[in-house]
Design a protein around this nucleic acid. Structure first.
Lengths: 230, 230
DNA sequence: CGACATGTTGAGACACATCAAACTGAGTGG
DNA sequence: CCACTCAGTTTGATGTGTCTCAACATGTCG
């Protein structure tokens, strides 16, 4: 049991450099470990939280993947992000201390739950932790800005390629291949996120393949040299 | 001179409830006042910072307005936000401690400069301040999520109306009329922000006027009852 | 194996972009 | 004070990228 705990702690986690423990020393990381709750696995389609629910914790993806989305008044879904291991989910709920979106597992996934009141308290004590939280939120703002450019200025084809390339880069950051990976989301999810129709996404995937920019085999994607922007 | 300083301090500022001092008591707000630098006015088109520049301060809009934008490799502008009095600009630079965008005055404007290292230090000391910074950044994430829905799911007409309505609401939050206001940005800026062409924005403004949803007189906008979503 | 979600491909429609031209208004100089 | 200029705005005519509708193919899970 002790060993299991050990294997699950932040020091052992492969994604700690992307997550909260970034640049932490022994003492600080132990305090973080104390407050983190390792939950049982989430199954595909299972929700981490729903919109309107009081925010008590943030959630770090340990394995698997999630999507975040909002629902408009008339019930249409808008996916706002896909989350990979090391990502932290729930920051949009801190303003009102109520979740402003939904988070749903795209596959069987593991989660570390981080109670927010204790995290905030630690943020007062450890400047490094405070700065890391700030850094993560700031990075999310930058991502949104890049996305805005894509949606407003780029063609459907460019958006699809951008999506695959940035996903590849994120896999690369996590020590996986940045060229070949498996999509955990459906074509419908991709289309929703990119503001396109399912049919357009499907067509463009085959077209990009014809242009020798990518290889597609169902959910398996390989980025070829031509995919890299000129 | 002492009086001038007084009239410029956070306690006297009409927009403090939107800004950092939100829910602050005397002692804390004074410390904030100590570190804030009131700068001379910025003229139209003058830039607060440029992309790539090291981040040393955040900036609170005191009066007037600004736009934030990024430039793509091939030099095309993408406006990411418009800033009104009480807004704080520069959060996207905290990840790299380097500004990731440009901020430019849309009209003659006053700014409060907030040195970031001292702000961060105060954030360690005052939980309220730390929470307010978090709240502001979280709110920006929510705004981006709402924008994503607009860009991906709404028609050009709906986007223009949404833009005017949310601008009106923000004016309302600041104690101005939420129904009648003057746009400080050009049609081109609006179009750029909303991912539309200038011509489309212009056409839709006249069309919305014909539908008795708004009144347009150059830069002066009035929202009519019909503008409020059904 | 059957059922149902997911993905692909084609044909036609349409919302918005682009191109083009005229209009307006603020600032400038004669 | 008026003519000039130029950025900003409006309006019209035409083009096109992507959506919609429809049919079919594939994969997945009981």
């Amino acid at each position: 049991m002790q060993k299991l705990q050990q294997s699950l702690c932040c020091q052992q986690c492969h994604f700690s450099q992307l997550c909260l423990p970034y640049s932490f020393k022994g003492k600080e990381i132990e305090r973080l470990d104390d407050i983190v709750v390792r939950k049982s696995p989430y199954q595909k389609h299972q929700r981490l939280y729903v919109s309107g629910q009081p925010l008590v914790s943030l959630y770090a993806v340990r394995s698997g993947s999630f999507k975040s989305f909002t629902l408009s008044e008339d019930g249409e879904e808008q996916i706002t992000a896909f989350h990979l291991p090391g990502d932290i989910i729930g920051f949009d709920g801190l303003e009102m201390m109520q979740h402003q979106s939904y988070a749903e597992a795209l596959e069987t996934s593991m989660i570390c739950e981080i109670p927010y009141d204790t995290l905030d308290h630690l943020a007062g004590v450890f400047p490094k932790l405070r700065q890391q939280i700030t850094r993560i939120m700031s990075g999310m703002l930058c991502q949104h800005q890049a996305m805005l450019l894509q949606l407003n200025k780029r063609s459907a084809s460019e958006r699809v390629l951008y999506f695959l390339a940035s996903l590849g880069q994120r896999f690369g950051d996590r020590g996986f291949s940045d060229k070949a990976f498996r999509l955990s989301m459906t074509r419908s999810d991709m289309a929703n996120y990119l503001g396109l129709s399912i049919e357009t996404v499907s067509r463009l995937l085959t077209q990009l393949q014809k242009e020798d920019k990518i290889e597609v085999e169902g959910k398996l994607i390989t980025l070829l040299d031509k995919a890299i922007p000129s």
